[in-house]
């Protein structure tokens, strides 16, 4: 199965949220990385058919998804970033309601809901009101609704936010299993999620696609640009001003292990380090971060 995104653009007045994005999604898990305001959510909404592109199109197996209409949404599962629910809904009510909107026949819906509740550990909270559940459990309910119609294409916007590490691991494993023969697109700020399960990732910035490929291919952009250095605590403030810090770790003897990204080693005693996606993220979005710091 292939989902071909052809020159997708979305403008709101003078503002361009997504600008000529083109790439092809194939079976497996795909990551979508980018800073806030990069256009990830807008792109996902266009893929889900919620927003109409200003130009461009999305082809599923060669057919335009807008022309497919219900047939496209029938094979689509979507979990938005801001998961909402009607306040009187229990988990059971919510999943029943979504099953009705997804056109599932009643008996099939009940069976499917039972399966998903077992898989996502929602059996104990099945009759509970969603508003009384923890954030992580609410997220699992959201994921359950996305999987209700056994979608061929699954689009998840920040699916693991609010999940504890154990839940995140279980969720990643579930997605990896689910993604066999299906397309799964997840956008996230938790780069470790993408590192562990995404076969390929797309990186967006300012509405444009600036990187596409496997983790290894993307990391080539920061190869030789990631360093670690031991810095005395007293010199730390100066060091933070000079370099783009990825992490700080306190060591013995009043020293701090600084991991940073730069074109060349800038701190005394720097050593090359194996790049990770987090390094790439900070390298690519260093301008946005600088703005926030100011």
């Amino acid at each position: 199965m292939e989902l071909e995104i052809q020159n997708l653009t979305k403008r709101f007045g003078a503002q361009t949220a997504v600008d000529g994005v083109s790439f092809t999604l194939t079976s497996g898990v795909w990551g979508l990385l980018g800073a806030n305001g990069a256009g990830k959510t807008t792109l996902m909404r266009m893929l889900a058919g919620i927003l109409t592109p200003t130009s461009g199109r999305v082809l599923c197996g060669g057919a335009d998804t807008r022309e497919m209409g219900e047939a496209w949404r029938d094979i689509l599962g979507y979990l938005p970033q801001n998961f909402g629910y009607y306040p009187e809904f229990t988990v059971a009510d919510y999943l029943d309601y979504m099953a009705a909107l997804k056109g599932l026949e009643r008996r099939a819906a009940r069976e499917r809901i039972g399966e998903l509740c077992a898989t996502l550990s929602l059996e104990r909270v099945y009759k509970s009101k969603i508003r009384n559940l923890s954030g992580g459990t609410q997220r699992r309910v959201g994921i359950a609704q996305a999987l209700l119609n056994d979608p061929q294409v699954l689009i998840l916007d920040e699916p693991t936010s609010g999940l504890d590490p154990g839940e995140r691991v279980r969720f990643r494993n579930l997605l990896s299993e689910f993604a066999r023969g299906r397309i799964v697109l997840i956008s996230t700020h938790i780069v470790s999620d993408v590192e562990y399960i995404a076969a390929k990732s797309a990186v967006m910035r300012g509405g444009r696609l600036i990187g596409l490929g496997t983790t290894a291919e993307l990391l080539r952009a920061v190869e030789g640009k990631v360093f670690t250095a031991l810095v005395p605590e007293s010199e730390l403030p100066r060091a933070e001003q000079e370099v783009r810090v990825v992490s700080l770790k306190g060591m013995d003897g009043a020293q701090v292990l600084v991991r940073y990204v730069a074109d060349a080693p800038l701190l005394r005693g720097s050593e090359f380090a194996e790049p990770r996606l987090e390094d790439l993220y900070l390298w690519l979005f260093k301008d946005e971060r600088r703005h926030e710091d100011v």
Binding site: R73, G84, P87, L101
Partner: peptide, 14 residues
């Protein structure tokens, strides 16, 4: 009001 617009818009029924 309750943030259900997106999820409903992406469901099969238009």
């Amino acid at each position: 009001r309750y943030g259900m617009s997106e999820v409903e818009a992406a469901a099969r029924v238009s």
